[in-house]
Amino acid sequence: MYSKPLSVGNDSSTIRIVSVLAEYPGVYPTISAALSASLDGDTILIEPGTYCESLLIDKAVSLVGNGACGDIVLESYNQPCLSLSSTGIHIECLTVRCRINMQAELYGAVNVTQGVVEIVNCDLSSASYACLMLAGPTTRVVMRHSIVHDSSGYGVFVGTVAQCLLEQCTFSNNMYAEVMAVQNSEVILQACILCHGKGYGVLVAECSHGCLSNCDIYKNAQAGIAVCQDSVAEISTCKVHDGKASGVTFSQNAHGIMEHCDVYANCSSAVEIKQNSNPVIRACKIYKGKWSGIFIGDRSGGIIEDCEILNNTLAGIEVTWESDPTIRHCRIHYHGRGIAVFQRGRGTVKDCDLRNNSQSSVLVEAGSQLAQERNSD
């Protein structure tokens, strides 16, 4: 259960046991009491029970639940459960929940303001602004194998040049976004599940950087992945599906690359490229959307290559409002129209298979133009 070695033979570190029973000498009745006695490198081993505490940790200690995660509960009211500001803090096997009986303040159940922090095998929920909130240029959080859910704001909020790595975590039922990165921050998600959110799956904004790989993102109320406001994203081998809006959106001068992804069965366009955005969409399968497969508008561009786009309700690719993408080596089939270009849209289509669209392979409205080379239609 415990993933870090205990240095019981090292005189410089100590294991301190906390129990709500506190029946034995040397056992602390509260986590706060054990923290007060701890030094850098110590481990606080927490026995099953519910601990109603708000902890400020500014030393390199480990808090480890001694049992099943659901049996060791750290709970706070109207303030963070954990406020962390040191490198070397390790949190493992705890249920952390923040409750409020007043209007939500701008804090998380776990707040990290500086240092490198590791969170493993935890369950985080919060009635406040976020389950996990981190900010600051020296702040880096690694969270693995954890569940993050039911926040009144964000599951994870990464701000002010902070960095966050999320591995094999599950996010669900958070209000605004399961994961958000803003203010020149960076978030990396690997093999995560993000589902049933009341807002976005992943939102990367304000000149931030997002990197997603092997994630399953589904049934969110807004876009499964949204990249906006001069941000950049690298998205690979992800599934984005069954959302109530678009699957993936690039907007407001967003850039990046999406490759080897499946985007399907979303209620709007599978991929939206808007407002001067210019990503690369490569080797993706885009299908069964209830709008167009890829919508490109508002003077956007982009490169669409080596993709299979099929069975979307409207066009395979729709280009509008002076946009100018390059589309090459794609198979675009089983739509009403393979490619539709409207409202002074432009584009270049090369070496594409545009057969088996019921109305036409290409529709170009008057005032728009489309350069075509070596296509099958």
Rank of each mutant, 00 (worst) to 15 (best):
283 A>K: 15
180 M>I: 15
340 A>F: 06
57 I>K: 06
224 G>Q: 07
354 L>M: 09
74 L>F: 05
269 S>E: 04
104 A>C: 08
10 N>A: 14
127 A>I: 07
176 Y>G: 04
98 C>Y: 03
322 E>R: 14
304 I>R: 03
357 N>R: 06
110 V>Q: 00
16 R>I: 13
368 S>H: 00
281 I>L: 06
161 V>W: 07
30 T>Q: 03
301 G>K: 01
308 E>T: 15
338 G>T: 08
187 V>Y: 08
311 N>M: 09
246 S>A: 15
322 E>A: 11
132 L>R: 01
118 E>L: 10
21 L>I: 09
76 S>K: 01
220 N>R: 04
178 E>G: 15
252 Q>G: 03
213 S>Q: 15
42 D>W: 05
363 L>R: 03
19 S>M: 05
118 E>W: 11
82 L>N: 01
347 G>A: 12
140 R>Y: 09
58 D>P: 02
151 S>L: 06
185 S>L: 08
118 E>Y: 12
313 T>F: 12
255 H>Q: 14
131 C>P: 01
55 L>G: 09
258 M>F: 06
309 I>K: 05
220 N>M: 08
267 C>G: 06
219 K>W: 02
362 V>H: 02
179 V>S: 10
116 V>S: 13
205 A>G: 05
179 V>M: 10
180 M>H: 08
114 Q>V: 07
60 A>D: 00
230 D>R: 12
200 Y>T: 09
89 I>D: 01
6 L>R: 00
218 Y>N: 02
94 L>F: 05
250 F>A: 08
55 L>W: 03
345 G>R: 01
34 A>F: 10
